[in-house]
Design a binder for these strands. Structure first.
Length: 361
DNA sequence: GCAGCGCCTACGTGCGTAGT
DNA sequence: ACTACGCACGTAGGCGCTGC
């Protein structure tokens, strides 16, 4: 198959393509190196004394949705300066020493792996005509390593679960660069204290209100400023708001009802009828259902027409009249939950007061 | 001195399995 | 479903021997 020069895969300098073979499995590029000499990796001097040659096989980035394989003839050289030293020529721009894939392919698969992980990354890579195993994706990620960053100044510390309810650890984030920088064993104060002592660059510590982290920050970084993190502040604020709304629910309902009627009737809303006497869509649908039933319409058809469930229609037909919704006596599940939250909030308020006192001390 | 050949070691890779 | 681990296999690269 003929392939135009403009659409051919890019060829590194010092490599000459001898043949391109396109088959259902991909594109095979047969090539050889063209430089007359090679640089000895030991002494750094070039040598022209060829020893032998062999074929290298390399995977590369896909071309037109086809996997690309290089079959490259490379040579071995004897070094003119290192006694007995024999080395293989390198192919800069294509592959590293001993590599089975090109640098650009390795980079692409590493990037995919960094986003998706091992197995999912391998699946996407295979879908993109860059076949690889999940293990190799993970190896590529480990090989890249973690880029070094300047010493952290503002860190966030919180607990997290290796296994929820069983094993916990502590996560340390660089809040300026939004990156996880360390994982510590357990959620006690000692590892955090040691970590902070080993990182004197930290000037601000954002943490939750737990005692161990407060203790760790106080002893490990006594000069650092401690702040409550934004997430916990928002959680506390939203819990407090819910508590207030719930405590004044009945007043809010009355006011809302008046406002609705004032806007729809042109009335000022100061006088209002009881809720049970208001327009009730549920009662309307029930009465319609009973009328249809009286006309001999099947339950299924009634349910379809009034857009109610067949069970609801069956219930209305069985009772023969509208049954207004009666709330069960005692607090609802939501009320019980909100009551629990309110209690926790009051406990939190007390803890916050203690924390505030500690921070000021 | 150089080129060709073969052997050996270490590395890269994929697969099966166990653990979470 | 995913990762870690061990293992087997293929091969890149290094080295020595031999013939010209």
């Amino acid at each position: 198959m003929q392939i135009s020069n403009s659409s051919r895969p890019s060829v590194p300098d010092g490599v000459h393509v001898d043949d391109l073979t396109l088959d259902p499995w991909g594109l095979l590029i047969t090539a050889h190196t063209t430089t007359v000499d090679a640089t000895c990796p030991s002494c750094g001097r070039s040598s022209t004394r060829m020893h032998s040659a062999y074929w290298r096989t390399l995977k590369d980035l896909p071309w037109q949705d086809r996997a690309v394989t290089w079959r490259l003839k490379v040579r071995r050289f004897r070094c003119s300066h290192c006694p007995g030293r024999i080395f293989s020529e390198r192919v800069p721009g294509l592959a590293a020493r001993k590599a089975r894939r090109s640098e650009r392919l390795a980079e692409a698969q590493t990037d995919i792996g960094m986003v998706l992980g091992g197995e999912p990354g391998a699946r996407l890579s295979r879908r993109l005509a860059m076949p690889v195993s999940g293990d190799t994706v993970l190896r590529l990620i480990r090989h890249r390593g973690i880029n070094s960053s300047p010493p952290p100044r503002v860190v966030g510390i919180d607990d997290w679960a290796w296994r929820r309810g069983r094993t916990y650890g502590t996560i340390v984030c660089d809040l300026e660069r939004r990156r996880v920088i360390d994982l510590l064993p357990g959620r006690s104060s000692a590892p955090v204290r040691d970590w902070l002592a080993a990182h004197p660059s930290v000037t601000v510590i954002s943490r939750d209100r737990s005692g161990p982290y407060a203790e760790a920050a106080r002893t490990g970084a006594p000069t650092a400023t401690q702040v409550a993190d934004r997430w916990h502040l928002l959680v506390n604020a939203s819990e407090a708001l819910r508590g207030i709304v719930e405590r004044h629910q009945s007043e809010i309902r009355v006011v809302a009802h008046r406002l609705v009627h004032a806007s729809s009737d042109g009335h000022d809303g100061t006088e209002s009828a009881p809720t049970s006497e208001l327009h009730n869509p549920r009662r309307d649908r029930c009465e319609t259902a009973l009328r249809f039933h009286g006309e001999g319409m099947p339950t299924k058809e009634i349910a379809r027409r009034i857009r109610a469930s067949r069970n609801a229609v069956r219930h209305w037909v069985r009772t023969g009249r509208f049954m207004p919704y009666r709330r069960a006596p005692g607090p609802s599940r939501l009320d019980r939950h909100l009551s629990f939250v309110e209690t926790r909030w009051q406990e939190g308020e007390r803890s916050a007061t203690v924390l505030h006192r500690e921070l000021r001390a």
